[in-house]
Amino acid sequence: MSGVHRTGRVTALVAAAGLGLLILLALLAPYVAPYGVDVIDLAQRRAAPSARHWFGTDELGRDLLTRVLFGARVSLAIGLVSAALSAAIGVTVGALAGYVGGASDAMLMRGTDAMLSVPRLPLLMIAAAVLAPGVPLLIVLVGAAGWMETARVVRAEVQSVKTRDFVVAARALGGSAPRVVLRHVLPGVLPTAAVSLTLAVGRGILLESALSFFGVGVQPPAASWGNMLYQAQTTMSSEPWLALVPGAFIFLTVLCCNMLGDAQFRSRALAS
């Protein structure tokens, strides 16, 4: 078993380091990017990757590496904040349903089922088309579309934790419901919530990129990895790097999130 433990820890470390590096690069984008974010160099339009422009340039001669770094800020921000929002809603709904039970449980879970049976991406695409959101509203939309899985696992966990002796004891000693939930039940649920939070970051980034790819997400001139792909689509055969690079960044980031979530999940499964 220790072999599994070790490989799990190594993957988790690599994934966490990768994510950390990306977040750092995104935060430091104005300092580490080789060119200005909107610097147009018409003499260097559609240049293939080279020593001067590592990832090449786009149709206006803007450096792709620079745009990818600045795009990372938007894509990562949407992924991280929307995941936090999803987790907050999911934990609240799941804890309420699991702890209170009865009619509120039935109502909340029917709502969750309803949300889960609407195909997520088309729903978000319509919402984004209708509301024409800026980045903050886009975060809210992506977050509001991703809490259902968290709610389900948290509810199941809360239901099992609340029958444990220490929770019963806390109630018997006269602890109020909010206090018992916050102090005694939720701490036991946190590891589960953490796993779904990590997975939600990757999902949020994928959803943002798909929305922007279809032209209803982040709008130009702001760059996100998704809308860079949207713009690259038409010139795919002549300038493939414009599509390959942002897509590779989406892939690697989501991969890191999923590997981290997987490793968390497995170490928890082994521990219990």
Binding site: S209, L229, Q233, M236, P240, A243, L244, F251, V254, C257
Partner: peptide
């Protein structure tokens, strides 16, 4: 499998188009 679920579907489509069609 983790790599597979992390792939943006539309990007995989674009890459396959690029390689096998273009």
């Amino acid at each position: 499998a983790v790599a597979g679920i992390s792939l943006p579907v539309f990007w995989l489509g674009l890459v396959l188009q690029l390689v096998f069609a273009n």
